[in-house]
Design a protein around this nucleic acid. Structure first.
Length: 177
DNA sequence: GTGATGATTGTTATC
DNA sequence: GATAACAATCATCAC
């Protein structure tokens, strides 16, 4: 829909040209296109909020999650993510619209959730624009939590805190085929 | 020990 | 409108 294709092709070519697939395995990561981008990326990341909701996976990524499992089963020796990505990409292209439908439905759901999260996030941003201190405190809290993984998670979850529930699980199997 | 990199496509965000 | 960035994955290397 958007202009993602052009970019995709461009990046594909650029990467392929700059980074032979054989090399990456050796971990020959050095000055590459990404290296250049990295500066920008890092810069962006620097001002990126850790609280900002992560972008939802596209239909392809939803598919990829499953595909990875299958791929691992069939190729237990192949652990290179690039191999999975390549294979997944090819497979994805070979899928029919009907086969892609369930993945797209899932992606749409995640996107809707993302929209809500972003809404809440934006609201929070507006609110906390003058009390960024609190955000920092929260960050520190998170850090502390991580430092102390021995917290009674069960307790917290029992209290209804960690009730993620993943309700999208309920109809993820709706293979309306 | 930590972070970066490799591939893939799609979507979002930014300019 | 066009393009850059990022989303997941994980073995492996560099620092």
């Amino acid at each position: 829909m958007k202009g993602g294709k052009g970019k995709g092709a461009l990046r594909k070519e650029t990467r392929s040209a700059l980074k032979p697939v054989e090399d990456r395995k050796m971990g020959k990561r050095k000055a590459t296109l990404k290296d250049d981008k990295k500066k920008v990326t890092k810069d962006k990341k620097a001002k990126k909020d850790p609280n900002k909701p992560k972008r939802p996976p596209s239909a392809f990524f939803v598919f990829l999650e499953e595909f990875r499992k299958t791929f691992k089963k069939e190729n237990p020796n192949v652990k290179a993510v690039s191999a999975v990505g390549k294979a997944g990409g090819e497979k994805w292209k070979s899928l029919s619209a009907a086969e892609k439908a369930p993945y797209e439905a899932k992606a749409a759901k995640r996107k809707a959730e993302y929209g809500k999260l972003m809404n809440a996030y934006n609201n929070k941003q507006t609110e906390s624009s003058d009390d960024e201190d609190e955000e920092e405190k929260e960050e520190e809290k998170e850090k502390e939590k991580k430092s102390k993984p021995e917290v009674h998670d069960e307790d917290a979850e029992d209290s209804g805190q960690g009730e993620e529930e993943e309700e999208d699980d309920e109809d993820e199997e709706d293979e309306d085929d």
